[in-house]
Nucleic acid binder design. Structure first.
Length: 432
RNA sequence: UCCUCGAUAGCUCAACGGUAGAGCAACCGGCUGUUAACCGGUAGGUUGCAGGUUCGAAUCCUGCUCGAGGAGCCA
């Protein structure tokens, strides 16, 4: 397929003075009697196309019939135009209407959340939503590029699982040919197995949580990048995570200036992110909270408001490490200096976006892991395969999981994670 | 599951016990440079559903449905 027959709107600048064809949808049009302005979008950007009645009366009248979101091919001469936001305009020489749209429900005026969510399949056409989805694509690509460049192998984890991975969160149950199965909440345990096979691995796919969480940070179905590496210790793991997150921010800053501006993102807040990220032990975080007048007991887990208070003290994401073992997952390695806490850390995004990474060194000792499984009241027989990883050449290893939607929401500076995925699944909504 | 808020024209909202209204969208007309263009006109309603109070209910009360924000839970 020859894609050079028409030009993408984002590339129009390099065709100044040429006659080109563009293909897309009508975003809006304005007219003032003898001049008509068509704003065309093609997924890569918006461009204003100009027609005058004097020069082309036939085209001028045809253009007036074109409704919002009609699809069309336009030919015209690319002209540098300082008045245009894009810097270029198209002087129209030809119009081919492909399909005239019915009256389009999503006008250029304000709409409510419910109205837009019911029409998510159309809402994603709006410039703001398209910008977010382009940035999401880049974030996902940058995750893969980063890990591939560090010799990680993509090893996909199953989505259908026979039991809870961590035993903590609520799972969606499915009927697996008359036996019970669940949608995966994490690929982590499988990652540990593939890491023992391949050394450094990651999986990247959807994960499912059935908790009835109803906040701007929660989805029922969200995407998680999970990495796991043999011989990686707690400290190596932290360094890997901060390098990754820094890389994501820099990549978006490099490639998406225009999109960030369209989103009205305060770019200086992203530019302020720097290495190394601050590190705060759980115990220090508790003190910080108490200093700031938030009463908090050592041993409790942080709530969303606590995370926000912690994040507000830093301009980069902040690691909170060495949580009490009893509020974290069973597989996390105890700190040899204080077995009450674990060798793991959560990475909390700035500006109150919440936890974007959870990671830890994993227990490599067979008998300790067996004991922890029993302490957490998990079915030991279901975990025999997982315990095998400690029976046959166990090594210290570490890993983490990064939530894509929260990361994208933070980088884009948007209010709610539902806009950071094409079709969000929230507590009371799974259509369209 | 709990707390708070909301539901009126296609959309965003107003009217808060006394004739249901505006802006935008749609439709008709006007205007050479507009940036959510603007100007004039037309049409558009079982006020979420079911009861109740009242001479009279969009408005007050009760229940329900749907949704939003938050808490808990979780990432």
């Amino acid at each position: 397929m020859n894609l050079l027959r028409w030009v993408l709107i984002k590339n129009l600048k390099s065709h100044a003075g040429e006659e080109v064809e563009i293909r897309g949808w009508l975003y809006n049009q304005r007219s003032s009697g003898k001049v008509r302005f068509l704003i065309l979008r093609d997924g890569t950007g918006l461009v204003q196309c100009v027609l005058t009645k004097e020069e082309a009366p036939g085209l001028f009248d045809l253009a007036g019939e074109i409704t919002q979101e009609s699809s069309l091919k336009l030919t015209g001469t690319v002209r540098e135009e300082p008045r245009a936001p894009m810097g270029v305009e198209l002087s129209v020489t030809g119009i081919e209407l492909i399909s005239r749209a019915e009256p389009y429900p999503i006008t250029l005026k304000d709409h409510g959340v419910d109205f837009l969510a019911d029409r998510r399949h159309l809402w994603i056409r709006s410039p703001r939503q398209a910008a977010i989805l382009r940035i999401r694509s880049t974030v996902e690509q940058a995750c893969r590029d980063f890990l591939n460049s560090r010799d990680f192998v993509l090893a996909d984890a199953p989505i259908i699982t026979p039991n809870a991975c961590e035993g903590t969160s609520t799972l969606f149950e499915i009927n697996y040919h008359d036996s019970r199965a669940y949608l995966s909440q994490s690929g982590q345990l499988y990652n540990e197995a593939t890491a023992m096979a391949l050394g450094r691995v990651y999986c990247f796919g959807p994960t499912f949580r059935a908790e009835k969480s109803k906040t701007r940070r929660h989805l029922m179905e969200f995407w998680m990048l999970e990495a796991e590496a043999a011989f990686l210790d707690y400290e190596d793991n932290i360094k890997l995570q901060e390098d990754l997150v820094y890389h994501l921010v820099q990549t978006v800053l490099e490639r998406h200036r225009d999109d960030l501006r369209l989103l009205k993102r305060d770019i200086s807040k992203l530019e302020a992110v720097s290495l190394p990220f601050p590190r705060l032990s759980y115990t220090e975080a508790v003190s910080l909270l108490n200093e700031k007048g938030h009463s908090f007991q050592w041993g409790d887990d942080f709530g969303a408001p606590d995370e926000t208070v912690i994040s507000e003290s830093y301009s980069s994401p902040v690691f909170v490490h060495r949580f009490p073992a009893k509020i974290k997952a069973f597989y996390m390695e105890p700190d040899p200096k204080n077995p009450e806490v674990i060798l793991g850390a959560d990475l909390i995004a700035p500006e109150g976006y919440g936890e974007i990474i959870g990671g830890s060194q994993r227990i490599s000792d067979l008998s300790l892991l067996e004991r922890k499984i029993k302490e957490h009241n998990l079915p030991v027989d279901q975990f025999q395969w997982y315990l095998d990883l400690r029976r046959f050449g166990s090594v210290p290893h570490s890993g983490f999981g990064l939530g894509i939607e929260r990361t994208v929401a933070w980088i884009c500076g948007i209010e709610h994670v539902r806009e950071s995925i094409p079709f969000p699944r929230t507590l009371y909504r799974m259509h369209p």
